[in-house]
Design a protein around this nucleic acid. Sequence first.
DNA 1: ATCGCACACGTTATAGCATAACGCAATTGA
DNA 2: TCAATTGCGTTATGCTATAACGTGTGCGAT
Lengths: 131, 131
Amino acid sequence: MGTPQLTKNQSLVMGALAHSDGPMSAYTILDKLRDQGFRAPLQVYRALDKLLEYGLVHRLESLNAFVACTCPHEHEHDHGVTAFTICEGCGQVTEFHDEAIEQRLSALVRAQSFKTEKTTIEIRGHCKSCA
Amino acid sequence: MGTPQLTKNQSLVMGALAHSDGPMSAYTILDKLRDQGFRAPLQVYRALDKLLEYGLVHRLESLNAFVACTCPHEHEHDHGVTAFTICEGCGQVTEFHDEAIEQRLSALVRAQSFKTEKTTIEIRGHCKSCA
DNA sequence: ATCGCACACGTTATAGCATAACGCAATTGA
DNA sequence: TCAATTGCGTTATGCTATAACGTGTGCGAT
């Protein structure tokens, strides 16, 4: 169960995200792809759903926006929790992973008998350049 | 610099959230307060902005919804990072805090020379009852 | 082969979330 | 008294996301 071949729309959306230097909203992606024949939000959202499912793209909940995954080889083995720093100045997003946090969260949640399906960690602030 | 006296609108919104057993969207709050004279979304959003600022309310980014803070006495001293479990079944939200996670995140972020302003941690899944 | 199914796609319409921009009223402090 | 601040009310608008419909294509089972 690797990543299937992407469809045309999925490739176009993936390309738009990959070549962007920051997160993009679905509607921004739509505008970028009008010349390639995109006309409606659903074309973007349907592609994004699949890309999210394949782990090629992340959704930033606090921005209602999407970024290409920057760990291109971790898609195979589900790589646990993903965290992000998001700079309010330049919009730069940095993805990172940490075993310690993952295990600590896992323990806390288990203590509630809670079954985790998806974990969101997003840190808003200012990066080194924008401080 | 404690929490100022709440205005009428702020009290109404706070009350609606406090008496709800789960998170509410701004529009749901609006509907609950129509009998009290609320007519427009901005009346809710303006009150929410202040309540968020005072630390009486939290915003759940992954739901676009709001909950009353369940740690009523921690508003004075800024109580670092707040995390939530959110049950997809019953909608129950549990707020919790953990020093270890806070310190670990702080260290990771400092390594990027990133200056944190707000941290979001939200865990979607199923609670014990809804497993 | 052809039937049925799953899946991607296209389109229109609508629902849900959030803010811009205007003006008014009350409060406060110089 | 005047200016600044804050809260409030209203209208309009913009941004984000999904519902519901139908089409076409590939592919395996009978």
